[in-house]
């Protein structure tokens, strides 16, 4: 079931061919609009600074990988990537671990204050990070979490945990409750039922949740930058270094930008079949 309105042998709808061409044109134009700025960044990353500033060309005239070499040989550059990936993975693991039982509780039980609690969790997803930047800085400095990976990971839980609960609850609610009851009658303990039966049933939901946690932690910068100085500095913050005495180092900036796109692209490729449902937060 993958058609939307294109039906075979449909006399009343517009002829199939013209629909297909219109679809093709719309999608092509849209995808070109999406890809052009990214292509321009890629184009710049393969040029030397002299070429960027002196000649205007749609593709590199003197193809060079020197900008990428700069990044891969300088520890303060590639260290940024390692820092980013470290706290993103930590955050994803923490978020899903605490969200799984909570989402199960919300999807299966009614309890004192449940709707209020759920709404309160959601409000944290809505809270502007700018509101939290300064207090986070003070709180985390005082408990020794400043400039650590786990500190950034915990700060990102602010918006990722509510989101994880929200998505997982959607997926769990679509699993019939009879499955739980049958398992208990068969003598499964809660722990065994949850890990052996329930989690495999919502595996795609867990995958989607992990994708979202990864995504929002990876793209966030305001908190990550405020809470780090050297040891856990994210790559996106390292990029501001390219402003030097001799002006902007455009080539390296562009290369660093391209390299931040790659992890996201890889993750998307793995979850591509679940993306659409995942973006609907399991509520389709």
């Amino acid at each position: 079931m993958n058609t939307t309105v294109t039906l075979p042998h449909s006399p009343t709808l517009a002829p199939k061919r013209s629909r297909l061409t219109r679809q093709g044109i719309v999608m092509t134009v849209y995808l070109i609009f999406l890809m052009l700025p990214i292509y321009w960044l890629l184009n710049m990353s393969l040029k030397t600074n002299e070429e960027i500033l002196s000649t205007f060309s749609l593709w590199p005239q003197n193809f060079t990988l020197a900008n990428y070499k700069t990044i891969f040989t300088d520890p303060s550059w590639y260290g940024g990537y390692i820092n980013s990936i470290t706290y993103v993975v930590m955050n994803t693991v923490i978020s899903i671990t605490v969200a799984l039982p909570a989402a199960y509780a919300f999807s299966r039980y009614r309890f004192l204050g449940d709707t209020h609690l759920f709404f309160w969790l959601l409000t944290n997803r809505m809270a502007p990070p700018a509101v939290f930047a300064l207090p986070f800085f003070q709180l985390y400095s005082s408990v020794g979490l400043f400039d650590t990976h786990i500190g950034v990971a915990l700060a990102h839980c602010l918006f990722n945990v509510p989101l994880a609960v929200w998505i997982l609850e959607g997926f769990m609610s679509s699993v019939p409750k009879e499955i739980d009851e049958t398992a208990y009658i068969d003598g499964y303990s809660f722990g065994r039922f949850f890990t052996r039966i329930f989690m495999p049933l919502i595996a795609s939901g867990i995958g989607v949740t992990a994708f979202f946690c990864f995504m929002f932690s990876w793209v966030e910068l305001l908190l990550a930058r405020t809470l780090t100085s050297v040891a856990a500095k994210p790559i996106a913050a390292t990029m501001t270094r390219t402003v030097s005495a001799s002006g902007m180092d455009w080539g390296v900036l562009a290369a660093a930008g391209i390299l931040t796109i790659i992890p996201g692209a890889l993750v998307i490729w793995f979850v591509r079949n679940y993306i659409a449902k995942g973006f609907a937060l399991g509520r389709v």
Partner: peptide, 9 residues
């Protein structure tokens, strides 16, 4: 793809 690019990038 654009959704997974860090915001400052």
């Amino acid at each position: 793809l654009p959704l997974l690019i860090p915001w400052n990038v």
